[in-house]
Write a protein that binds this DNA or RNA. Structure first.
Length: 546
RNA sequence: GCGCCCGUAGCUCAGUUGGACAGAGCAGCGGCCUUCUAAGCCGCAGGCCGGGGGUUCGAAUCCUCCCGGGCGCGCCA
């Protein structure tokens, strides 16, 4: 049983004995200071008014009621707070629980296997992925894993935008590179893609095609487009693979058009009277629903906008049977998110269907100061280069260690030179130390055949109690990280756990300590297991030695 | 100008549905390796939580105004 459940249950029983109606949920928290107990409740504050007693008085009475209860070694009332110190038995049960649950410790069946889709990266196939995409790739991937841990059946999906103006610009830019390779002085269009990654492809086309397309024609565009998109997608897949991110489904914009979904969705919106014509374009009636402006759905040249296609795409997701969809997107999409949500609402999709995880951008700190990356201008840091240089583990960790809503300050030089101060190594090193002791215990014959059976009562050291309390917290951390779309909480947690373990390891000897040894081995095994669980959720490796 | 996000130690950031004297890592200063890996551990120092008002028994947290930074603002995605 989780420690919180002991506290909550005991308080509810005590209130009943006192004839005080319990609130729907009894608040139980982890105090910041250890003097305030292992767990604490401020139940007396909300209840004081209804029973016409002061919080202090009510807390005192509750403490009196609870002080003899078995799960607690001490219950005290301080300034209206009710502070609990847990007895050795429930603490030992935490360790035993971790060992019994094993690789499923901290997971839940809240999602009950219901289908959930998470769409992320979805970068246009116009160039390699950059550090900015890296944040989204790591965020989305970890978020997907977190929701899977909560029992959802998760689909990772990449939306591939292989139509529209940007793709034409890509093809036009590549054609220029192709002509350049043949000796023509054709410049890459000013608003085209300037990056030199297209130059190599241009060379390739020149060799393959010779002088087949001397001028920019519809035919040239058609063929170059297909070639360019396939090549760019291959590059993006490689970049994702380097990060250890794999998608279950790839959806192409072109397919949505071919299946008639865009036209169908537009018609449905028009049937609702939400579409009007002006200046040769077709618009969505959005200001009438509280938005700041009306977006264009169909441009005056007859082609659909990104918003239009995205509404159609999300209608498709809805029909595919997902109960929830989460899109991970950058902060520059906030306006369009509202527009898409409005479109879905008009088409009777429940408001809870689509949710966004919005993240701020990665800023690079260099000698020239902060610089915004731009794929179009060819000014970017390739994701794959960085992953290769830092290692997958370090890169992924750095991308998710901050709250998504905050800017991620990525100091390239520091990240490269982190061997001594890197939290990733700090956490992984804790894991290897556990493994090392267990190996040694195996060698000396001190490792019990079954850690579940071990007597855990010798775990009375304050550092051991602190570690156990931290282990007990892991399920809550996974839950809040999943609910709040906040993978960084897992990072913080692992740093805290490792931060408790290293000092303990340095001070307290495990092997050759008589009755304490099996208990400490069980504790170490459970610490190692939770570290491994956390690292795995983040998609990092769990080395046995370093 | 309008909308959204952010402003906490020298730096990078945490801070649970408002709660008990504000936390971590790094940088700085001083210690610790004959014993399960010193990629570690221990100690010291460091803060009007951007600023003013308000709500509350209680505010870094909620409301309001101001200052500073990021992103976006009808046919790019």
């Amino acid at each position: 049983m989780r420690l919180e459940a002991h506290v909550r249950g005991s308080i509810e029983e005590a209130l009943e004995r006192m004839g005080v109606p319990a609130p729907h949920e009894v608040p139980v928290e982890r105090p910041q200071r250890s003097e305030h107990g292992d767990l604490t409740s401020r139940i007396a504050f909300p209840l004081a008014r209804s029973v016409r007693r002061s919080p202090q008085e009510l807390a005192r009475q509750l403490a009196e009621q609870l002080d003899g209860e078995t799960p607690f070694s001490e219950v005290s009332a301080v300034d209206g707070f009710l502070n609990f110190r847990m007895a050795p038995i429930p603490l030992g049960e935490v360790v035993r629980g971790v060992i019994i649950d094993g690789e499923s410790y901290g997971s839940s069946d809240e999602g009950a296997g219901r289908p959930l889709q998470i769409e992320f990266v979805s970068s246009n196939p116009t160039g390699p992925l950059t550090v900015g995409h890296g944040r989204q790739a790591a965020l989305g991937d970890v978020l997907a894993e977190l929701l899977a841990q909560r029992g959802w059946h998760v689909t990772r999906e990449y939306y591939m935008n292989d139509e529209g103006h940007q793709i034409v610009m890509l093809a036009r830019s590549l054609w220029a590179r192709y002509r350049q390779a043949l000796g023509d002085a054709v410049p890459v269009p000013e608003d085209g893609y300037q990056g030199d990654y297209l130059a190599a492809l241009g060379e390739e086309l020149a060799q393959q095609w010779g002088d087949r397309y001397p001028t920019w024609t519809t035919e040239a565009e058609g063929e170059i487009r297909v070639f360019a998109v396939e090549r760019m997608m291959a590059v993006i897949r490689e970049d994702l693979q380097a990060m250890g991110v794999a998608f279950d489904v790839w959806t192409r914009e072109g397919d949505l058009h071919r299946r008639g979904l865009v036209a169908e969705t537009l018609e449905a919106l028009a049937d609702r009277g939400a579409v009007y014509e002006r200046e040769g374009a077709r618009w969505l009636e959005a200001t009438a629903h509280g938005l700041s402006r009306d977006p264009v759905l169909i441009k005056s040249d007859g082609t659909p906008t990104y918003i239009m296609v995205d509404i159609a795409y999300h209608m498709d997701k809805f029909r595919r049977g997902f109960e929830r969809v989460i899109d991970v997107q950058g902060a520059d999409h906030v306006d369009t998110q509202r527009q898409v949500k409005l479109g879905l609402k008009l088409l009777d999709v429940p408001d809870t269907f689509l949710d966004y995880c919005i993240h701020q951008f990665v800023t690079l700190k260099g000698a020239e100061g902060v610089q915004r990356m731009s794929t179009r201008a060819g000014r970017f840091l390739r994701l794959s280069d960085l992953v290769e240089e830092l290692g997958r583990d370090v890169f992924r960790y750095f991308m998710v260690m901050r709250k998504p809503s905050s800017h991620l300050n990525f100091d390239y030089a520091l990240a490269k030179d982190t061997s001594m101060e890197n939290p990733v190594y700090y956490i992984q090193y804790a894991h290897t130390r556990v493994a090392s002791v267990l190996r040694e215990a195996q060698r000396t014959g001190e490792l019990p055949a079954s850690l579940v059976e071990v007597d855990l009562s010798p775990l009375t050291d304050e550092a051991e109690r602190a570690l156990i309390l931290e282990l007990d917290r892991f399920p809550e951390v996974l839950a809040s990280a999943a609910h709040g779309y906040a993978p960084h909480l897992v990072c913080e947690y692992l740093e805290d756990l490792a931060g408790l373990f290293h000092p303990y390891y340095s001070r307290v000897r495990v092997l050759g300590q008589g009755a304490a040894t099996p208990a400490r081995l069980a504790l170490l095994a459970s610490v190692g297991l939770v570290l491994r669980r956390g690292l795995t959720v983040l998609g990092l490796s769990t080395p046995e030695e370093m």
